[in-house]
Amino acid sequence: MPDNDHSLMERTAQGDLSAFEELVAKHQRLVLNTIFRYIGNQAEAEDLSQEVFIRVFKFAKRYRPQAKFTTWLYRIITNICLNYHRQKKRKPSVSLDSPVFIEGEELPRQISLPSDTQPDVILERQEKDSVIREAIDSLPEKQKMAVILQRFEGLSYGEISKIMGCSVSAIESLLFRAKQALKEKLKDYLN
């Protein structure tokens, strides 16, 4: 309910921390997963999610309920993700979460799945995630963000254009190119 978000923001702006806590509890999963899909690293996604909420808190007094709260929230997420990418390009670093290769083979990652999960199911899941991740990561940054917002978050072209500060036709074009690239990248796995 967007109205509830607006009133929670209003109370946050007045210094009501319980309202802010409620707002965080409501949106933390959305923020974390959007960032995780974009950067593919859980630890860094958690840090950046905290950064998003710090900005929400900091700018609560300046917040004006003109559009949906989530549109404003996605705009902050998009800015943080694109800034992260720019900084990463300037200062490349090795992440502890990045895949480890030994003699050209990727070392399987330990993941927490239910103990009764079959090893082949775990492997299949890991391989699938890795293929999807690679395909998404191969996209240029703006195409990647547009795909995440459209496919995973289910946002309309109009909303994405507001969030990314582009025209609707620019979003159409970004998504068209992204889908063509994904189709090419994944064709071997889909046949």
């Binding site: 999963r29 995780f36 996604a45 999807i132 991740r133 496919r151 994944l186 064709k187 889909l190």
Partner: peptide, 11 residues
């Protein structure tokens, strides 16, 4: 392709 990428796991 679009259906496949949607299967990316969540955290």
């Amino acid at each position: 392709a679009l259906g496949f990428i949607k299967e990316l796991g969540t955290i």
